[in-house]
């Protein structure tokens, strides 16, 4: 049946140029969806290391000497972690906004403006991410 004829790099480059809004939205949505899944498992794994804190004395917890608080504090002390948090927010916000766009698409709403709603998702994601930077980076230096 129809097997694609390999035109090598020429075809690959051409196809990138061909991509329009809806296609980029799809790629970004895949990407962000899987990044969120990846984060979810990392999140669970890291927090699990803090489980012994459940058995710590009340005094240790009040003083912030338990494993849980120590883990969080040391992680938040790293600039890299702060930057990754900004990235995570960007990824999550885009996935939510574009996800809403896709749900509307499924309901047949706003199909004529599908490219504009994608650009709007991008711009809004950018704005929210920039606005979040002070909160995430505060005290990291």
């Amino acid at each position: 049946m129809s097997q694609s004829y390999n035109r090598g790099l020429i075809e690959d480059f051409a196809r990138w140029r061909e991509f329009e809004a809806g296609m980029w939205a799809w790629i970004f949505h895949k990407f962000t969806g899987w990044v969120l899944i990846g984060y979810l498992f990392t999140h669970i794994a890291v927090l699990s290391t803090g489980i012994p804190a459940a058995g710590a004395s009340e005094a240790a917890i009040a003083a912030g000497n338990d494993v849980y608080t120590q883990t969080i504090v040391s992680l938040e002390g790293l600039l890299l972690v702060r930057l990754l948090e900004v990235g995570l927010l960007a990824v999550a916000v885009f996935h939510m906004l574009n996800g809403t766009r896709l749900l509307l698409t499924d309901l047949g709403i706003g199909l004529d403006a599908q490219d504009k709603s994608f650009y709007a998702s991008l711009i809004l994601t950018g704005a929210i991410t920039v606005a979040s930077v002070p909160t995430f980076i505060a005290g990291a230096f």
Binding site: A21, G22, L102
Partner: peptide, 9 residues
């Protein structure tokens, strides 16, 4: 269909 809109374009 994954609503990529390429066909419509």
């Amino acid at each position: 269909c994954q609503t990529q809109f390429s066909c419509t374009e």
